[in-house]
């Protein structure tokens, strides 16, 4: 496999970028987008350029950059081998006029396709609120591997996931033990690994690597998606009832009845 073969993304791929980004609901900030970059091509340190400016230097495989607050707009992205002179030569990967709309939250992943070719794939990140007590977990297949099953605690939770797709679940917060198997088999390809799924956060798990370099998991966490409980219960017996006490209610009703009787007498005595 020739990992340094330059792959220029076609206009069609750049179009897919724009589509994905604009599918993200706009958030409050009207000027910027939140972008993270994951390097998931084994054994190939790179430099990442945006609009001709170096964005990330000596970016090592298995590392995550960001989140970056980038001004909304169109970006030309290029990924060069890190040992090349700055911005010279032929990029390993490139994409032109990538639309980054305001309010988007996305992760751009440099990874291998199922066939082992380098690729740039943008994923839109779901930043909607997570119900109280829950955690969101998204699994993304970015490894040079066929379809896989993702298991949590031995149970298949995402069957038949293929590169470069994702599966999302909302689960009770806590630590799960996850592994990845070849789809439909018990042959473990990655893991098991303990994943701490914190309440009110989104944990994005990437399966990446290749048969030659080995397979690994990478994680990205988006915090601040929590919701509050809907209330606080607190008592069922009425022992500290703070309403008008019953004897006083009785006294008040008695007064009303007395007034009614006396009033009736007043009216009849006048006739």
């Amino acid at each position: 496999m020739d990992k340094t073969r330059p792959i220029a993304l076609t206009a069609g791929t750049a179009g897919a970028f724009a589509l994905l980004f604009s599918a993200t609901p706009a958030l409050a900030d009207s000027h910027t987008a939140t972008v993270s970059v994951l390097h998931a091509i084994p054994d190939t340190p790179v430099d990442v350029y945006a609009n001709g400016e170096r964005l990330i230097d000596d970016f090592a495989p298995g590392t995550l950059a960001g989140p970056l607050e980038l001004p909304a707009g169109d970006y030309d992205l290029a990924v060069f081998p890190a040992d090349a002179a700055d911005a010279s030569g032929t990029p390993l990967l490139s994409a032109t006029d990538v639309a980054v709309p305001a309010g988007a939250n996305a992760t751009v992943v440099a990874h291998l396709t199922e066939a082992g070719e380098p690729a740039l794939t943008p994923f839109a990140n779901d930043t909607s609120a997570v119900p109280a007590g829950q955690a969101r977990v998204t699994v993304r297949h970015t490894a040079a591997a066929p379809a896989v099953d993702v298991r949590a605690g031995g149970e298949v939770v995402a069957p038949g996931l293929t590169n470069p797709n994702e599966a999302t679940l909302e689960v009770p917060a806590g630590t799960i033990t996850a592994d990845v198997t070849l789809a439909g088999t018990d042959t473990v390809a990655i893991g098991p690994a303990d994943l701490a799924l914190e309440e009110g956060t989104s944990t994005i798990v990437y399966a990446w690597g290749s048969g030659d370099a080995g397979y690994e998991l990478a994680t990205q966490t988006i915090t601040g998606l929590h919701s509050s409980p809907s209330g606080v219960p607190g008592g069922s017996a009425g022992l500290v009832d703070d309403g008008l006490p019953l004897p006083l209610v009785g006294l008040s009703v008695l007064g009303l009845a007395g007034a009614a009787v006396a009033g009736r007498r007043l009216v009849t005595s006048r006739v």
Partner: peptide, 14 residues
Amino acid sequence: NAVAGVAVGLALAV
């Protein structure tokens, strides 16, 4: 007495 009764009753009720 009736007037007083109405007055006392209402006073209690309120």
